[in-house]
Nucleic acid binder design. Sequence first.
DNA 1: TAATAAAACGGGAAATTTCCCCTTTCCGAA
DNA 2: TTCGGAAAGGGGAAATTTCCCGTTTTATTA
Lengths: 210, 210
Amino acid sequence: MKITIGIVDDHQLFLKSLGLMLESFNEFKVTLMAMNGNDLQEKISPQNYQDIILIDVNMPVMNGIETAKWLNKNYPLIKLVALSMNDTDRTIIEMIKAGCYAYLLKDCHPDELEKALHEIYTKGFYNSDVININYRRLLLAENDPLNISEKERIFLEYACSDMTYKQIAAEMKLSERTIDGYRENLFHKFKVRSRVGLALEAIRKNIVKL
Amino acid sequence: MKITIGIVDDHQLFLKSLGLMLESFNEFKVTLMAMNGNDLQEKISPQNYQDIILIDVNMPVMNGIETAKWLNKNYPLIKLVALSMNDTDRTIIEMIKAGCYAYLLKDCHPDELEKALHEIYTKGFYNSDVININYRRLLLAENDPLNISEKERIFLEYACSDMTYKQIAAEMKLSERTIDGYRENLFHKFKVRSRVGLALEAIRKNIVKL
DNA sequence: TAATAAAACGGGAAATTTCCCCTTTCCGAA
DNA sequence: TTCGGAAAGGGGAAATTTCCCGTTTTATTA
């Protein structure tokens, strides 16, 4: 009996070709491919069971974190593996908290992928050198108390634009005072004295994408 | 005789699995794989000739643009195709100027990739709907001259910081009015209404480095 | 050398940002 | 149910930004 694998990734080329590669390993059978979390929810069912599901971190529509959380809740027996582009990806820590057994970089060697999937299936975990290093670093980063709330994060996105605070308040359907509170908190957290400094820091810390 | 393909991409999983996929099309033979431009320079030779080379836009060490330029100069007969993650990639116009015959998004359908490669090999070009829309838009953006003077460029660097205009004026040893003139000119040139917008545009246009 | 354009500079006002101190509302734990 | 803390909202003032009206200085060229 082959190990059944599901893949969730919005990049079709990667999705299909990774599927081909996994099938070529002979040990695996790709039984589910989805473009994003929503797509997965429609395609997955107890009848179409996967041993392992590989989840891309960055996806439109329903991203990796939401997808991992949903799977962890509804299909807790499926072993989840996060796939990300770059090792500085802040969301990777969230992926692990969301129930992923491991994360792998997309530029890892195919042999490592095979080894990882095999170990996860048999032993239930996989520790690469990479993950140990990064996990520690990410936990450290986690520990520094930046602690941006979801509302603040959304506000940050708006702050990184040509809009005035008044316009942002209207857009977020909140009072200008509330917006001003977010601003003040973030100024302290980021140690900046102006909106420009805030915007630049948000981009540097990869909280807002340019 | 199969069409020989080279692939340059820093993501090993993508590199190897895309290779597998192309080979599965039967019409193609992947005869070169490289992790980046430098790697490619070492591996390529007139004896190991490629019909088409797929180049990832974003790579460390030696990026897609440099790689494309180098190939175009040293192996002008090889047809180059740019591969990028997202269609808002500003560097795509540079890739085409650097000699790429087409660009494809990594989330395109495998069938489109096959079609594109086939057409590029036989006809020498490929026009997807996507490329026509974006190419025009990008060329338009390219054509407006912008014309940033050296003083304005230096001011832009300062503007991308936590400093007030007064501090910037002191630092540049110029009157606040003069600074204000730079600001006003740049607002028009960048079509923005605030310093935040200006700073973000300067970074997007790669005039100021983050 | 005079004309001319561009760069530098200036005053002032309106809009926006930044900062401070405060009240109300909501929500979970005791 | 009440308490406490966090989130949301409020008023107002000083600082900064944005904008529009100019003049002076500098550099270029006819």
